[in-house]
Amino acid sequence: MATKHHVVTRVNGEEVEFLCEARHSLLEALRETLGLTGTKEGCLDGNCGACTVTLDGRLMDSCLVLAVEAHGREIQTIEGVASPQGLHPVQQAFLEEAALQCGICTPGFIVSAKALLEREPNPTEERIRWWLAGNLCRCTGYDKIVRAVVDAAARMAEVKG
């Protein structure tokens, strides 16, 4: 008796197939099955945002999505943010603004911040704080994270400019 489901999906632009049980979360499939451990596990109940990915362009806590739901969808994880040409401006800004300490929440913040800036290239501080409220960071007090997002917006505007 087959106990696993066959899932065909796209992860960071590439077609991926995997088997999973019905009870497996997308987070579990990414980390355990596909070895994409950049997406972090912090709480497994959708409250910390460390496992943030995009599913068809929409931000999700991947611990709250079943792996089978990824079938036929498009997933973006932290591993797909940088390109062979280099880091994404959000990543560069996080480095230069010292917007990370332990770094466990960082992939989730970067995926969230990138999604924000793709929608709204020039957000206010208030808007950034609203958008990132689903991502918990216990180290930084958020100050440098908010600054990094402002800085990344400026970098991206320059590139476009």
């Binding site: 994409l36 451990t37 950049g38 997406t39 972090k40 596990e41 994880t77 932290i78 591993e79 943010v81 940088a82 880091l87 990543q91 996080f94 480095l95 230069e96 010292a98 990370l100 770094g103 466990i104 960082t106 992939p107 970067i110």
Partner: peptide, 17 residues
């Protein structure tokens, strides 16, 4: 820029989990 920074902003850094 911190030495371990790039690994931590790209998801490459390996934590215990």
């Amino acid at each position: 820029i911190r030495h371990d920074g790039t690994d931590k902003v790209t998801g490459r850094a390996l934590y215990g989990g």
